[in-house]
Design a protein around this nucleic acid. Sequence first.
DNA 1: AAAATCTACTAAATCGTTTTCGTAGTTTCA
DNA 2: TGAAACTACGAAAACGATTTAGTAGATTTT
Lengths: 341, 341
Amino acid sequence: MVSLKDISKACGVSVATVSKALNDHSDISQETKKHVREVADKLGYRPNAAAQALKTNRTNNIGVLFVDEANSGLTHDYFNHVLDSFKRTAEENGYDITFINSGNKRLNNMSYLSHAIYRGFDGIVIACVDFSDPQVDELIKSEIPVVTIDHLFYNRTAIMSDNVNGINELATYVYEQGHRKIAYIHGKESGMESSVTKSRLSSFYKTLQDLGVDIPDEYVPAVPYRDTDAAYEATIKLLDLKEPPTCIFYPDDFAAFGGINAIRKRGLRIPEDVSVVGYDGIELARKISPILTTMVQDTEQIGSVAASKLIDLINNPKGTIVEQVVVKGNIERGESVARIS
Amino acid sequence: MVSLKDISKACGVSVATVSKALNDHSDISQETKKHVREVADKLGYRPNAAAQALKTNRTNNIGVLFVDEANSGLTHDYFNHVLDSFKRTAEENGYDITFINSGNKRLNNMSYLSHAIYRGFDGIVIACVDFSDPQVDELIKSEIPVVTIDHLFYNRTAIMSDNVNGINELATYVYEQGHRKIAYIHGKESGMESSVTKSRLSSFYKTLQDLGVDIPDEYVPAVPYRDTDAAYEATIKLLDLKEPPTCIFYPDDFAAFGGINAIRKRGLRIPEDVSVVGYDGIELARKISPILTTMVQDTEQIGSVAASKLIDLINNPKGTIVEQVVVKGNIERGESVARIS
DNA sequence: AAAATCTACTAAATCGTTTTCGTAGTTTCA
DNA sequence: TGAAACTACGAAAACGATTTAGTAGATTTT
């Protein structure tokens, strides 16, 4: 590898001068800068990230913690869209993205925090994890700049999808279409309730209460997120009630697919007999017939705001205010909710 | 940060001894090792990746290039499953995963190769890119260990999903169900044909030829991958032929959703009137009704084999043979192909 | 013309590791 | 008992960059 020393020899100037020339310091003449840069190009010089990091304590590398119970969040279509957008914004700003993990055998079973310190990440973004994990807590309490997505920690910047408004818009829309018997098969995590779930659920109750609609308890069962089979079962139960709902909300579009199957299995039509509402706005939701009524979360915005805010924090660790950014989604009215009278 | 020097002071031994003790060298006594490790733990020591990399020329970091036209491959459900599996295997072996990118403004608009050298990746995995990109070519020709996924380069190890066998199994199955008028709306990339497309197409022709089935040219239109709208249009055209097919293959499950919509729009039933065959085996394919007949690509295996082979190459850059690994998929017979007589 | 100020550069320390080469001190062997 | 062989450790160089403090020489100021 060609290093500063090689350039310095080829140019007949000191290593210090080469470094400064390449970094455009003010105490180097224009001619020298030009010359050094030409020679650097000619020799095919590329800086060495490790050496730079060692010296400057900056890696220009951001750690990403996207882990759900089963897999990494990579296969989760909401989170991978968020990550995709995050990555784009980060890279535009000169940062690379590396996944944080734990339990590395080579490294003494490092925790998330140890791993982050080991790699020297300038900042960290956390999403889609079990937020009650003590290792996550350790990260949150560390010195490293952190933003979280869809979860609010004390004293940490958070980017949140606007679940309160999302459910509110959906519920209001459904109400306006004439529905009064509205069920909400809502999501649940394996552990305790997440803030996402809580926000949505309370918004659901609040919205309908404000509209004067009463929701019986059996209209609000819980199933795991993205579990089509559980959603199927829960739907069957709802349809079997003496007073079945005319419209069913699902925790996510994925689960809604399970519900759709259940409804059709019962020989009922969508939306004429039962209306269906999803959440997320995954690509396929718009590709099926009827087009799914759902809340399209603004993954683009969430990801890029998260990256920008994190970079702000990195560049100004003490001065930047901790904030909570709420990103609104866009309702997709679709075709799966009927107008009834 | 606590460094070897701190431990060395606390233990009353030299830095060299500390390093060797932690790395379990043989010329350090058991007692010293024990003592050093205890003190290291007590002080909360974590190695510094940058310093290690600088000294050893090993980063334990693998570069990932997953880019398609629009986005990173992150939002592509086949590739993100592959990546997820790759990541898991790599991490189990002590490697981290960082995305390769190019055009970083901070770094003089680095190419992929420059970026890889800058970060000192021990190895690189390439998938889902425009393989005709000169920058990709530069990577392939570099000194860095590389494996590619679903594309074969001369002199580089490649992991390929078995598209020949995949299409063969599907076509044979459909034939056995009695179909003779079989169309294949096949995928096409924006640039030239990829090896994936070529393999599938030639396997389709070969299989049916061997079975004595004749395929008219108008049965084999091309549409972009994952484009539901284009698949919709192509399907409509097929249905409008004087002799419409009884079964239609799609480039992927996604596109198949477009086809399903078209068929239903025409008032036809699936599979009674028209049978549908996808490719990929995305999660939702099993969640719709009728369950989609498709080829489930073994993303788990592809990802983990890619990681293992890459790590072999890293550990033995010269000795390891370049190979081409073909990974078979599993047919999902589903419910979208009818038995006809 | 001496003093002060600039300009453009360099030497050297440093970041945190790893590794080579020595070397005291102990044990083994002839 | 002296030579050979081990054992357990340390000093120092090196990896490739950045940065501080210093300094010749030219230029400006008084």
